[in-house]
Every structure is written in structure tokens, then in C-alpha cells.
Design a protein around this nucleic acid. Structure first.
Lengths: 166, 166
DNA sequence: ATATATTTTCAGAAATAATTGAAAATTAGA
DNA sequence: TCTAATTTTCAATTATTTCTGAAAATATAT
């Protein structure tokens, strides 16, 4: 397969996958473009590479930086800003889990705790409390496990272990 | 907290969370409604409970059945169809992972394998091959692990173990 | 077979999300 | 300071997704 075709297919595939997971297509495509770029890129390069507007590029680059997946690089003697992506896919996955946990899972756990205080004065309310209790226990277990894994991954020895496989 | 408020808050929260994960809001809300319902519900009950149209209810119930999260119940002497949800949240999580793996991850793994055959005849192409190789190894490892966990979870002993926590 | 209840489909409407492009703001050199 | 390069913002536009509602299809009872 020719490089140009492979690159386009990768960017398109990454964008589609992201969409299915609630992440906007352009954001994923910029990430893909930067991941496979040997050099950091400026806004115009990204605009040209993906055929998108300046505003769109700017907004999604900012979001990617908020997610901790892309970083700004300032080159001496250059006025423009350059961008590069984290390329270690383990770190990318870890960062995504970390952010989603913080932004989405944590607030849900709070709501679940609140809902557990419901008055169980009817059949419906009792069933509700039972289901919420079940969800809450599992969610907390999953959250604690994820948290432990994230912490463990920051440990050198574990990283060495995983580097054998990845 | 009053039951009616708690129920509404749960349905709304579940819907929001789902949206952030690429699942449509109504589908998640129907799922939430059925999870906390002590009895199976018919289409009119769901329509009334969520204030949605018949078409919407029907379409999303079908999708939920495709995902293996909701099932039809036929009551003798009743002409209408009733629906009920899987309430064991471990089973729900497992089913979601299983389906997403089949629908989304598996196709991406195929594309990645294809992309690994790219000609590495330039700096860009070499970097591309390196990143794709990295992603592919990690994705395959994760996929294999998920698959193993799904299989293990079907094992009685493991289920007993988890049932202590959840 | 006919009537009635129920489910399914789907074109158009509504809602939501993403994108553009140009103006405003910011930054840094002369 | 002034000017030019660059980045950011955001109202308007465009694209995408979801939802409605009524007609068509299907199923069941008489």
C-alpha cells in the first residue's frame, strides 16, 4: 500500500472510531495526523493536511491540549506555534481514561450517592434503590480499579513489564 | 429525596452519560427506565414515562434488543408486547464491551493490519509504520485481554468472586 | 373474511453539533 | 509607538443526528 493512501485511511479510521465514542471527528483526525507526523506541525500545515478552516483547527487543538494529548512547541526564531502529539499509545490510552474518569465518571458517582438516599416507601422506590445500589457498588469498584491501574502504570517496574508487550 | 425526583434524575443522568459515550440519549433513557422498573413495560408505558413518540420508542427498543440489553416478553392473553432490561450491571457492562468489541474494535484491528503493509520508503512512511505498529500491538493486547476477561466472567467461580463485591 | 389492535417504517421536521470565515485580540519585531 | 504576523473568538451557516406522526404492514380475534 502506498504511504499516501495508508495515511488517509488511518486518519479516516481514527476519526470514525472516535465519533462512535463521543469524540468529535476533527479532533481525532488532528490527533491522528500529529501522531504519525515525524515533526511537529503548525496550524497551516494541519489546515492543509485535513482541509479544515483555521477556526476549526484552533478550537480542536485547544481541546486536544486540554485532554493532555497534544502539546505546544515554541521554536526559537519562529513566531508561529507548533504542535506535537503524545505518540506512546499506552500513555494516550491512560490519559483518555484519566480524563474521562475525571470529567464523566466522577460526577456520576456523586449523583449515584445522592440517589441512594431515596425514600423506599413503595414497590417502585424499593426496586429503584436496589438497582441504584447495585450500579453504585459496581461503578465504585470499577473506578477504584481503574484508579489503581492508572497509579500502577506510573510505576517504573510496571512500565518496564508492559514495554515487553507494547 | 422523593422517589419521583430520584427517578427523573437517574434517567437524565444515565442519558447524559450515554451521550458522552456515543450512545443516543433516548436509548439510554429507555434502558434506565426499564432497569428501575419492577415490572416489564409496554410501548405506551415507555412513551408516557419518557414523553416520546411511538416511532422513537419502537426504534430504540429494537436497538436495545440488538445490543442484548433489553428483551421482549410475551404475556399470555395479552396482545401487546412487554419489555424488560437486564438488571445485573456486571452483565450490562460485559454485554456493552462485547458488542463494542465486535462492532468497532474488531474492524479497526483489521484496518491496522492492512496499514502495516505500507511501503516504508520515506521518513514519513517510516514514522507512520512505527506508530501503526505501536498502536496495533497495544490494541491487540487490549483486545486479547478483554476477550479473556469476558470469557473468564462466564466462568462460575469468577462470578462468585465478583458477586462478593457487586 | 373482516375488523381491530398493535407494531413497524420512513419522509419530513426539529434539535443538536460541527464548521466556517472574517473581525477582534494578541503578540512581537522594527 | 506603529505595523504586520499570528491566534482567538463567535455569529452565521452547514452538516449530522434524532424524533415525530401518520400511513403501511402485521398479527390476532371474532
Amino acid at each position: 500500500m502506498e504511504f499516501a493512501d495508508a495515511r488517509d485511511k488511518f486518519i479516516q479510521t481514527w476519526g470514525t472510531l472516535a465519533t462512535q465514542w463521543g469524540i468529535n471527528r476533527t479532533m481525532a483526525q488532528i490527533h491522528a495526523l500529529l501522531m504519525i507526523s515525524p515533526e511537529s506541525m503548525d496550524t497551516d500545515g494541519i489546515m492543509a493536511g485535513l482541509q479544515i478552516s483555521r477556526g476549526n483547527a484552533n478550537m480542536n487543538l485547544r481541546d486536544l491540549m486540554d485532554w493532555g494529548l497534544v502539546f505546544k512547541q515554541l521554536k526559537t526564531g519562529e513566531r508561529r506555534e507548533f504542535f506535537y502529539a503524545e505518540k506512546d499509545i499506552w500513555k494516550v490510552a491512560r490519559q483518555v481514561v484519566k480524563e474521562r474518569r475525571r470529567r464523566e465518571i466522577a460526577p456520576v458517582l456523586t449523583v449515584l450517592d445522592e440517589l441512594k438516599t431515596v425514600k423506599t416507601d413503595s414497590l417502585e422506590a424499593a426496586e429503584f434503590a436496589k438497582v441504584i445500589g447495585n450500579i453504585s457498588r459496581v461503578a465504585n469498584f470499577a473506578d477504584t480499579t481503574a484508579s489503581a491501574v492508572l497509579k500502577a502504570e506510573e510505576n517504573w517496574l510496571v512500565n518496564q513489564f508492559f514495554s515487553v508487550f507494547a
